[in-house]
Amino acid sequence: MENNISLTLKVWRQNGPKEKGRFETYKLEKVSTDSSFLEMMDILNEQLINDGNEPVAFDHDCREGICGMCSLYINGRPHGPDDDVTTCQLHMRKFKDGETITIEPWRSAGFPVIKDLIVNRNAFDTIIAAGGYTSVSTGGVPDANAIPIPKVDADEAMDAASCIGCGACVATCKNGSAMLFVSAKVSHLALLPQGKVEAARRAKNMVAKMDELGFGNCTNTGACEVECPKGVSISNIARLNREFLKAKLQD
């Protein structure tokens, strides 16, 4: 099963947030098809360091598809040419010998480049801070089984909550819209009785923050859902629209 392939990499290099970037081309020989994409990047960096060059900076951490840190735009797709994976779960067997791979950072006005392939996604935290929580402090809460929750609701909330905040939705959206991200959080909490209490306030505040931060308007193309490594559905966007409009009409 294991095979070695040779690759040509076109990698975006940018020294800092304000600097101009450019593509650099690198050749890489004998990459095992059993390696992950990021291990291939490790090999590239090892080669660059040994040649006395600066390695390529890219975000990554858990390398098992859950932290949401990795964020490469590979050959026209966020997280590359496989479905339901993050970049770190992408493996080299998805590429052919001799292939040229173009590697870019997430592009969106909401995600400015910090260095090379690393972008700033603090906007997502700011949106969560605007209302993506239940306003309960530690202690003094009722027993966990005090409020029964229908299994279907709990399961649907779980599906929405599985968002890892990677930003692939924004990266692929032709509008640079963060609606899938925002809707996943609004849905997760709106589906549960604990979150319903402040559902209206949450929807309004999070949407207002999203707009303020310069993310685009959703035009329902559904590209986000296709590229979401966790398969978060755009049905959540419908729910967000519903929650938001309901909230606004009650004002």
Partner: peptide
């Protein structure tokens, strides 16, 4: 939406 997409475009296009 064009503004939100940003001025830098993807060199590898969009293959979603």
């Amino acid at each position: 939406n064009n503004k939100a997409r940003g001025s830098a475009k993807y060199a590898s296009g969009n293959n979603t």
